[in-house]
């Protein structure tokens, strides 16, 4: 009867609403059930993270292998402490690798790039990368550039 049809349509409506919610969660925010892969944590300290945010990606050779878990301020060393999760299958990052904060495009997102070192010892859960390169802050670059120009023309 008519009310059966209404019930059916209401059912469709609720399923559609929930499907939209799941779609937004998985496809748009990237909240994946598959992304709950095994990870291990490594740490790096930077002088200046210049706009790096949590959940920024961590790449090796341009391929994403993990993401930033948390960022905090290390008040003893006056540095930013970045903790990141690296996928467990990427277990072979040498101890002496270096890590840099990179920018995609001129104004794009900040992300981390790891350059592979030469040591035999690999990073383990909780280890730290000591060789870090801070973010390039645009203002600093520009002032450096201007300073070089003027000092150059003085000579």
């Amino acid at each position: 009867m008519r009310s059966k049809r209404a019930e059916l349509l209401v059912g469709c409506f609720i399923v559609l609403g929930l499907a939209a919610f799941v779609y937004l969660a998985v496809q748009v925010s990237g909240l994946g059930f598959s992304s709950q892969k095994d990870t291990y944590q490594i740490v790096a300290r930077f002088d200046d993270i210049g706009g790096l945010s949590e959940r920024a990606k961590v790449t090796i050779a341009g391929v994403t292998v993990g993401s930033v878990d948390s960022i905090s301020y290390d008040k003893d060393l006056y540095m930013a402490k970045v903790t990141m999760n690296i996928e467990s299958d990427v277990k072979n990052i040498p101890d002496d690798s270096s890590i840099a904060i990179l920018t995609s495009g001129l104004l794009g997102e900040k992300y981390l790039g790891i350059s592979i070192g030469a040591e035999d010892r690999m990073l383990q859960n909780g280890d730290e990368i000591h060789d870090t390169q801070s973010a390039l802050v645009l203002e600093n670059l520009i002032s450096q550039f201007l300073f070089n120009k003027t000092s150059g023309s003085d000579k």
Binding site: A25, Q27, V28, S29, G30, A56, K57, E109
Partner: peptide, 19 residues
């Protein structure tokens, strides 16, 4: 398109707050 979107959209701050 998708990767930049997924990188900047957070489930809790964006989707749940919207909800």
């Amino acid at each position: 398109f998708w990767s930049l979107m997924q990188q900047s959209v957070y489930f809790d701050t964006d989707i749940l707050n919207g909800l």
